[in-house]
Amino acid sequence: MAVDRILVLVERGPAGPVSASLELLSAARGLAARVDGAAWGADVSSLAGTVGAYGAATLFDLGDPGDALPGPQVAAALAGLATGPDAPDAILVPTTYDGRDIAARLSVRLDRPVLTNVVGLELVDGTLTTSHAIFGGAQVARARFTGAGPGIFVVRAKSFPAEEVGGDPAAVVTVGPADVGTTGAARVVSRHVEERSGPSLDEAAVVVSGGRGLGQPESYQLVEELARLLHGAPGASRAIVDAGWVPYAYQVGQTGKTVKPTVYLAVGISGATQHLVGMKGAKNIVAINKDQEAPIFSIADLGVVGDVHKIVPQLIEALKQRA
């Protein structure tokens, strides 16, 4: 099965397409002769410039679900694009809250399976072959679809670099909205935004993550303060997310975010495989842990054996002196 066309689901963030979608457009360019995007929401055409600059020829407007959660309607509109002579060979979906819902529902509509948690994609003998980090990233599994296309791939953020090529704005083609009746009846009645300053976890050059070694929720302030002084973003291990110290969006790891900053600072984190898989792509890793045997030290470029309650305040003080 040669790969001629790839369709990329483009999700909108507060400032245009989310970076995970731009990464997929960039990756798709290297795999297929033609790349198209598909997006939903109000004023999809405002995304055409960016999507074109990342190499897409066409941007399909899947309709505006308004306040409804987009899964059912977007999947129905996509299913319409996925059949017929112009059908893509593959549909790439970013691993986001809505992306997974859309891919799952699309899979049922097309009666095709989905490959999820994809971290690499390449052509092997003309067939798209995926990579997946398994057993906490200790091993890599590679997989492919066997039946007829299109294959649905749900790809984790930061699996590919996003690279602009400066193409013309994509041509906008309207295909939605699809009517899905009560299946699409879940609707957002209010949005609650937790105040956060500084760069996002995805984009920060420095990520400072805290773990259970902080001892109590109040100590997370040390992590936030350190992140702020380094113009970075605060993150967390699942242990303290589950304990309710910080929201889920802060979680780094297998069931959280993948981050690839210039520096990752792990503060009181043991380094369980499920955490490592989300951060070991960082260029540099610094770890502070009082246990010399903590697994995090086996991948840290600089490991400090000591008490976070002593070292982090000293570090904060030193950084303040420089500022």
């Binding site: 095709r112 091993q139 599994a141 997989a143 840290a300």
Partner: peptide, 18 residues
């Protein structure tokens, strides 16, 4: 409709100074 074609060890990341 999918198959695993290979499972291999990931490249290990070496630790540095402790």
């Amino acid at each position: 409709g999918q198959e695993l074609v290979e499972v291999r060890d990931a490249e290990a990341r070496a630790g540095g100074e402790v």
